[in-house]
Simulated assay, not measured.
Amino acid sequence: MNVTIDKNSGYCFGVEYAIQMAEDELGHSAELYCLGDIVHNRMEVERLHQQGLRVIDREQLGQLHDCKVLIRAHGEPPETYQLALRNNIELIDASCPVVLKLQNRVKHAFDATTRQNGQIVLYGQPGHAEVTGLNGQTGNRAIVVMTEQDLDQIDFRRPVTLFSQTTKSTAGFYRMKQMMEERIAAAGGDLTTFDANDSICRQVSNREPQLRKFAHEHDVVVFVSGRKSSNGKALFGVVNHENPRSYFVENEQELQDDWFEGATSVGICGATSTPMWLMQRVADRIAEVGEAVA
């Protein structure tokens, strides 16, 4: 049985940058705090915990003083930086440059649209760290949507500016855009006041066509990702649509031998938050299964 790891899978630039910053700091510090999981992958979080990275939540951040805290790639709202100043916390800011640029765009759009009685809409997962940071640029006055039902929150007779969480599905964003245009027309609104911005990271969106091709090249596909990963859910949907013999796992312990019955080719791929070492571990376990059934 031939087992292949997708060379295009693995960390995106933002995640790789954040982990490198954490490891560099831990190289000369026994302990470092991180606001939220540094990456939505339990295995990687556990590996870095062993090196001294301690995950905290926002409530715990408020109790800290005179220490160092890492801001992960997802970015943070303005109030996090204000709290750090008050509590003499040194922030090691590993916010992804793509996310920071989007935060700036949302802030400028909010300032402009407020003068026109408009609304900022974010296509993204409510409660997701990146969405929290983006919404913070609007004073938490943006409308967050994920489903068609969520659109009921919007007044389509008023101007609307739409942005997307950077790791969402491109197809999902354009479906949302189309539904919003239909709602504007039905409400008698003005489509010229609807500004839709495809702000999905191209490192993420470019993986979709690559994964479609990869899924077709193998009898079985194993997609490796943390279950908290928004990007992982979106990309697995792409793979599973192309190849029904696709399986989602967090690690090699979740593999089931009967998945590979009759397979001569197995492909391993993952999310932008999946480390290459974990995909290799999954590949090694599948290779053992192949030897056992040969």
Rank of each mutant, 00 (worst) to 15 (best):
R158V: 05
G232F: 00
F248P: 00
T170I: 14
R202T: 14
K233M: 11
Q203C: 02
V204L: 07
V224G: 06
R207F: 07
Q253N: 15
L255D: 03
G237F: 08
W259L: 06
G237N: 07
E208I: 11
F163G: 03
S199M: 09
E182H: 10
F248E: 00
A186E: 12
S229W: 01
I200G: 01
F194I: 07
K177E: 15
M176E: 06
E242K: 02
K233E: 15
A234E: 08
A185S: 10
T170K: 13
R207M: 15
I200P: 01
A187M: 10
M180H: 05
F260R: 02
L162H: 05
L255G: 07
W259K: 04
K213D: 12
D155L: 15
A187S: 14
V221P: 03
V204E: 02
A196T: 11
T192Q: 15
G237H: 01
V249I: 11
F236V: 03
R212H: 07
N197H: 15
V239M: 07
H216V: 01
D195N: 12
L255C: 12
F214Q: 05
F223L: 05
S229C: 06
R227Y: 13
R245H: 12
T193A: 11
P159G: 04
Y174V: 04
S225M: 00
V204C: 02
A196G: 12
F194A: 08
K168L: 14
L211D: 06
D219Q: 12
G188I: 15
V238I: 15
M179K: 08
F194L: 11
W259E: 05
S205R: 02
S199T: 15
Y174Q: 09
H241A: 14
Q203K: 08
H218Y: 07
K228W: 00
E254P: 03
R158W: 01
A215S: 10
R158D: 05
K177G: 00
S205F: 10
T193R: 14
I200E: 03
T161R: 12
D257F: 08
Y247T: 01
V222Y: 04
S230L: 09
Y247A: 05
V160W: 04
E250Q: 13
P244Y: 00
P244H: 06
I200L: 07
A234H: 09
N231G: 06
A186I: 08
F248L: 11
V249E: 08
K233Y: 00
G189K: 02
A196N: 12
